[in-house]
Amino acid sequence: MRNSGIMKDVIIIGGLISTQFVYAGNAMLMSYLMSLGLQCFTIVIYTSFATFLILLPFVLYFERSKWPKRISFKLMVQFLLLAFGGVTLFQSLFLKGINLTSAAMGTAMPNLAPGIIFIIAWTFRLEKVDLRCTYSRVKITGTLLCVLGAFTMSLMQSISISLPIEGLKVQSTTPLPPIVMFDREKIIGCLYLLASILVLSVAVVLQAFTLGEFPAPMSLSAITSFFGGFITTAAQLIEYHEIKTGWSLVSAGDMIGYSVLSGAVNGIGLSFSAWALEKRGPVFVSMFSPVGTVCSVIFSIVTLGDSTVNIGSIAGMFLMFTGLYFVLWAKGKEDGLESEFDAEKPLLS
């Protein structure tokens, strides 16, 4: 029995690390495709429909009995809001941010989500906060560290340092200091990523409400992916007046193949994470999120020679990860004090 328990832990830990490794590789691939001119709307459209088709048979087999007999107007509105925010708006902003910054930056920013969700839940009184409680103070401190880390990483990503012109050195008796410049595109990209994580956090809070009336998470993902594909198609038609890839070398067949691959990768990753979530809980699973960022940094340096990864960026990542673990540690301790069947259990549980 003890050996089987150790083996299960090895499988869970190895699987979670592998999942983050694959997510980082997928982010690198998307960043590379967009650098060649592929439209982010097109990626969202194809991957959304592919995710729906891949999830559909599992939804019908495992969750059909959990569907309510009648879909209310309120529930339909929630589906559409989740599709617009969680699929179209979030993924479009996220992909634009990756395109203007880097895959490493894109995989680092989602670590802000637990802190932002905590703030939103606190604002709407969905999360209990007592400033006299150590755990509440730790969560607030962790959230502030996450924000500070994201700000530091964004600032350092957008800074470039160049040496002064040689001719000016001849006319001056003292050496001139290096010229520090800010990359406007990278700053805009960081703002895109921050906006996408804010949208994602709001969508997670709305999802928590929706699952109370529609307790089928896999079905909810399939439905919002389906609606999100159509909403994104409408958005591209409004902006470009046609469905276009933005890169003449990418055919519809290529996009379908990539979308099926991406949908399968995401589907397997989500399924394994859900299984690990059931076995070890949300705090344990969330602890592996920074692994994806580390993998992206290594991929960026090895494959692309990315020079934007510097000591300042690494320091920002460290602050963000430290803040994330502060929030997760406090949540784990609070959840241990809560009854498993408490109807008012905190949202982030």
Rank of each mutant, 00 (worst) to 15 (best):
G253V: 15
L319P: 01
D254F: 03
Q171V: 13
F62D: 11
L168W: 07
G229Q: 09
A276E: 02
G106L: 03
C40K: 12
V285W: 00
P68E: 13
M1Q: 14
S92A: 07
G212P: 04
G142M: 00
F124K: 04
S35E: 12
T134L: 06
N266M: 08
M320Q: 09
K331E: 00
T42H: 09
I238K: 13
A50G: 06
R125V: 11
L220H: 04
A343H: 07
S349L: 11
T152D: 11
G149K: 01
F62W: 09
G312S: 07
S158I: 01
R64M: 03
G189Y: 15
D130Y: 01
R70T: 13
G336R: 00
C133K: 10
P110L: 05
R70L: 11
Y258R: 08
Q171F: 15
M7A: 15
Q207M: 14
I238R: 08
T233H: 12
G253Y: 05
K8G: 14
K331R: 04
A24T: 09
L148F: 10
F58L: 06
T152P: 12
I45Q: 08
C146V: 10
A222H: 00
S262V: 14
V283A: 05
I98E: 07
Y258A: 12
L29I: 13
T245H: 15
Y23W: 11
T232Q: 12
M287T: 04
L36M: 13
L194G: 11
F288K: 02
A208S: 13
V204S: 08
S48P: 07
E338M: 12
V291L: 15
S201W: 06
S201I: 03
K128H: 04
P215C: 01
P290V: 03
G246M: 02
S349N: 14
D254K: 05
G228H: 01
F230A: 07
R184T: 10
L82W: 01
V327D: 00
S92W: 10
S273D: 03
T232A: 15
Q171S: 14
A274K: 12
A27K: 00
T210I: 07
Y32L: 14
L131D: 06
F299L: 13
L55N: 12
S4Q: 15
G85I: 11
Y240I: 02
A208N: 13
L155V: 04
M109K: 03
M109Y: 10
M317N: 10
L324A: 09
S35V: 08
V10S: 06
V87T: 13
C133D: 07
S307I: 15
S102Q: 01
S296G: 14
E239Q: 07
G149T: 01
Q20P: 09
G15A: 06
K331W: 00
L112F: 04
G229H: 02
V250M: 11
A222E: 00
G229V: 01
L93M: 08
E344P: 07
I197L: 03
D183M: 10
E213N: 06
